[in-house]
Nucleic acid binder design. Structure first.
Length: 862
RNA sequence: GCCCUGGUGGUGGAAUUGGUAGACACGCAGGACUUAAAAUCCUGUGAUCAUUGCGGUCGUGCGGGUUCAAGUCCCGCCCGGGGUACCA
């Protein structure tokens, strides 16, 4: 009987499911291992062969860890809130929950066919009220916390209130967006609303007027990571800058910790680089320049304070608050005209138009603090209002953008680096020697920066400063299909909904569109007011509830915690479960989430850690990015190009084990690689050959109890060793060739011995679980092969008595010579030089040198 | 521009620490079995020169270098993929 994958795979999938074979149970006597996949958004298109690639790899690792005796947590769920379901709802009027549920069922069916060892009892769906209750609860923790810069951690806002009462806000060093400073007396004098507005500016979840990415097509705001090249990442719609009052999360407070934390993570350098570039730390100085004829000062941020003697003008962002104040009457028309023009340029135009240098002179001057020289103040949109102080000290000889600006407007370019040619461009390297700079003359950059920092501090005009490119994350979406934000308003002051009223469930609406006056869809609900005693009440009968919903990345920022204790009605997960299972030992998913999900995921973990809910402060110790599978034509696999390969079809033709093996065999997991339809024949053939080892020519199961020979044991232990090593270093493709080599060798040896085949079955079972369950069962085992123990390789079986040495002359391999393994250098050298094959290559010469690496090579230098 | 990645036969890839480049597959060619096909098995398969056989030369994107020895290390380029971009 040939191997019949169709009935066999179904048989074992049913067995696993009815016996709950992969159910994970908290068991403190066993070491745990948590393998997590990035959960999918269940789209209507279903899975193509690219999607399971990562799931197969993580499944192999999970099974491997089980065989090693770990208690493995390997869950799966759905990132179920999202825009496509909502767009579909707008078009068809169907509730997004309905289409989402349909898609989930389709996904589940596809996933089940591949033979994954998920513990489905722990499944989460982010759009379920029982799940998003806790997403809302985490939002409340964020709302109730502020970030203390001194301790570098989140703390309860209630503590802030006390400090304000006692000493105002001057002594507190916290992350905030409050531009007031006040004394205790003033604080006590503020109204309730004023106090609440100030506290809001300190909260980690805060409401603030800010410039946001507004997408008119989608009718919602987007976070920075959701915008690519001035267009929305999803849909590619135009995005414009707009000032709006929005919920935001103060992730910037965690910038330094998010950066520092990378160091101890076993993530790829590529990914860590993407995150650290996105965080964008830069170290420098903030320096004040006195304005000529005004009380105000212009503050600039610079990473090169040592170039301060090269400053020949200042540039403010057009939106800078001092612009209107300092512009002289004579320049007023020009400046105002420029501001209007630049404000009408969209982000996109600005990006596309980098070469075009624009700006205007304000007519004002500042004083260079050391030379008292008068320096003209310009405005220009190459200076961004949102970064640093929104103003720069322009050093055209040291910064190319400043140089371009100076060159364009005919401003002075004083040289400050020895030997530089200012007519050519700026000298940006940090190697030069400083000139024309008073007390800094003759110094190198590093030393000069130290000295100038000391000087400006001494003079009270500047200080050391660190800036980050990363911005706070806009958290509200003018959309329906997301978690409601658990906030209601009393006289414009946001209040948290009572915890007992969670989950704050999405209300019914008649349409999923904004209202006619542009309010979000939740405004349409007839039941969207709040009464602190009763909970949700009819619209018009209570306080206004928040109308925006949370962004798509909310549910995914903490889902890994819920898997640890998925049904807990009282907590996000029990302390015990969090303590035992956390953090994730191995996380697998696409690199496209580097600046979105993976940052928020780390951020929420750190907050929950600070608030003592978690003992760890990084969610995933080790992370692997799987590559993309391209279509056979090298393009992206997409419905649009009609080149999608559906795993269901592959499984119908070749079986799930073949699919799994083939996807791994395509190449290293982290690489992009094209799908290859023909190649699957190779792994199918392998599975048939494997089957045949256990069966005689008539197809009857036939196993010998005879002891194994040396060469059989060698084949077996080679593959045991290779599989374990390969899997530890996540090289899933090379294991497959090792399996093939073993099966080919054992086939040649006509080996059907239990002593060999039993361990071999276990070794292959992680990659090909169905066929091996069947063989395992035929070998007489009543338990699943996943409960077996990983065979340990024995060095003794791999030891050779002889070694075939490659013998090289001048580095070129000329012939092989078999010598006893225990020959020492001397003996090897003698054997090689006296060997008759050497004569031809020696040509009578005496070797200059003979290199012998025992067990490896011989090289003779002539 | 800057920061990451990658570049090896016709194809996917292997070579883990500098030590026989091309494992394992696909494809292709030839053969066995068969009335035929499928399945299975065997042989060959980097290029090139030579050929009766032995064999020689070249070869890991390009150009240099280090080394007894380089796909692997160093320097300078080219090309593909990703990230980021007036971030001071």
């Amino acid at each position: 009987m040939e191997y019949d994958f169709r009935t066999n795979e179904k048989k074992w999938q049913n067995y696993w499911s009815t016996n709950h074979t992969f159910k994970a149970v908290l068991d403190k006597t066993k070491p745990k291992y948590y393998v997590l996949d990035m959960f999918p958004y269940p789209s209507g298109a279903g899975l193509h062969v690219g999607h399971p690639l990562g799931y197969i790899a993580s499944d192999i690792l999970s099974r491997f860890k089980r065989l090693q005796g770990f208690n493995v947590l390997h869950p799966m769920g759905y990132d179920a809130f999202g825009l496509p379901a909502e767009q579909y709802a707008i078009q068809t009027g169907q509730h997004p929950a309905k289409t989402t549920e349909e898609n989930i069922l389709m996904y589940r069916e596809q996933l089940d066919k591949i033979g994954f060892s998920f513990d489905w009892k722990r499944q989460v769906k982010t759009s379920e009220p029982s799940y998003y209750k806790w997403t809302q609860w985490i939002f409340m923790q964020l709302f109730n916390s502020y970030f203390c810069n001194d301790e570098q951690k989140a703390k309860p806002v209630s503590g802030l209130n006390k400090v304000f009462n006692n000493e105002g806000n001057s002594s507190i060093n916290a992350a905030h967006s409050c531009n007031l400073s006040f004394t205790a007396e003033q604080w006590k004098g503020f109204s309730h609303k004023e106090q609440q507005d100030i506290l809001l500016d300190y909260r980690l979840a805060y409401l603030a007027e800010s410039v946001v990415n507004w997408c008119p097509e989608m009718g919602t705001v987007l976070a920075n990571d959701e915008v690519k090249d001035g267009k929305s990442e999803r849909g590619g719609y135009e995005v414009v800058q707009k000032k709006m009052k929005q919920w935001s999360l103060r992730i910037t407070a965690y910038a330094q910790r998010l950066l520092d934390g990378l160091e101890n993570l076993d993530w790829s350098d590529a990914l860590k680089d993407i995150q650290s570039n996105w965080i964008g730390r830069s170290e420098g100085a903030q320096i004040k320049f006195d304005l000529d004829g005004h009380d105000e000062v212009i503050e600039v941020f610079t990473t090169r304070p040592d170039t301060i003697f090269g400053v020949s003008f200042m540039v403010l962002a057009p939106e800078h608050e001092l612009v209107s104040k300092i512009t002289t009457a004579g320049q007023k028309v020009e400046v105002e005209k420029y501001i209007v023009v630049s404000s009408h340029r969209s982000e996109r135009e600005r990006l596309a138009d980098v070469k075009n240098i624009t700006g205007a002179f304000t007519g004002a001057y500042v004083k260079q603090p050391f030379s008292d020289e008068k320096i003209p103040v310009w405005i220009g949109d190459y200076v961004l209002a949102g970064y640093g102080t929104g103003a720069v000290m322009a050093v055209p000889s040291g910064d190319q953008r400043d140089w371009d600006f100076a060159n364009h407007f005919g401003l002075a370019i004083p040289p400050i680096i020895k030997g530089q040619d200012v007519s050519e461009g700026a000298e940006v390297s940090k190697d030069g020697e400083i000139i024309n700079s008073d007390f800094l003359n003759g110094m190198k950059v590093k030393k000069a920066i130290k000295l100038i920092l000391f000087k400006v501090k001494e003079m009270g005009i500047g200080e050391h400063r660190i800036n980050y490119k990363m911005r706070d994350a806009v958290f509200g979406r003018q959309r329906y299909w997301g978690e409601p934000i658990p906030v209601y308003y009393v006289d414009g002051v946001p209040n948290l909904v009572k915890e007992e009223h969670l989950p704050l469930a999405l209300p019914k609406v008649d349409k999923y569109l904004p209202t006619s006056d542009g309010e979000p869809p939740l405004k349409r609900s007839e039941n969207w007011n709040y009464n602190p005693e009763k909970g949700i009440v009819k619209s018009g009968e209570g306080y206004e509830l928040e109308l925006t919903t949370m962004p798509g990345w909310s549910g995914s920022s903490w889902y890994y915690l819920r898997y640890m204790d998925a049904d807990n009605p009282n907590e996000i997960a029990s302390k015990e479960a969090l303590e035992y299972w956390g953090p994730v030992d191995f996380y697998l998913g696409g690199a496209e989430h580097a600046t979105g999900h993976l940052l928020y995921f780390r951020f929420w973990t750190k907050v929950l850690h600070d608030l003592d809910f978690l003992s760890f402060d990084e969610p995933a110790k080790k992370l692997l990015n799987q590559g993309m599978i391209q279509a056979e034509d090298g393009q992206k696999m997409s419905k649009r190009y009609g080149n999608v390969v559906n795993p269901d079809d592959v499984i119908a033709d070749h079986g799930a084990d073949a699919l799994r093996l083939h996807e791994m065999f395509l190449g290293p997991i982290e690489m992009h690689k094209p799908w290859n339809t023909q190649g699957i024949e190779g792994v199918s053939k392998f599975l048939r050959k494997l089957w045949r080892l256990y069966h005689d020519v008539d197809g009857d199961f036939n196993i010998s109890e005879e002891p194994a020979t040396k060469s059989e044991l060698k084949s077996l232990h080679k593959v045991i060793k290779k599989f374990a090593e390969d899997t530890e270093r996540l090289s899933f493709n090379t294991s497959v060739s090792a399996f093939m080599v073993a099966v080919n060798e054992l086939g040649d040896l006509k080996c059907n011995k239990r002593e060999i085949l039993e361990p071999l079955t276990i070794v292959v079972s992680c990659h090909a679980p169905h066929i091996t369950e069947e063989l395992w069962n035929k070998l007489g085992h009543s338990e699943s092969i996943s409960k077996a123990e990983l065979p340990i390789y024995n060095e003794a079986y791999l030891k050779e008595d002889t070694k075939k040495y490659p013998v090289s002359f001048n580095g070129k391999m000329r012939f092989m010579l078999e010598l006893p393994m225990d020959f020492n250098k001397q003996q090897i050298e003698e054997a090689v030089t006296t060997n008759e094959q050497s004569e031809r290559w020696l040509e009578g010469k005496t070797p200059k040198k003979i290199i012998v690496v025992p067990g490896k090579i011989v090289n003779i230098v002539l």
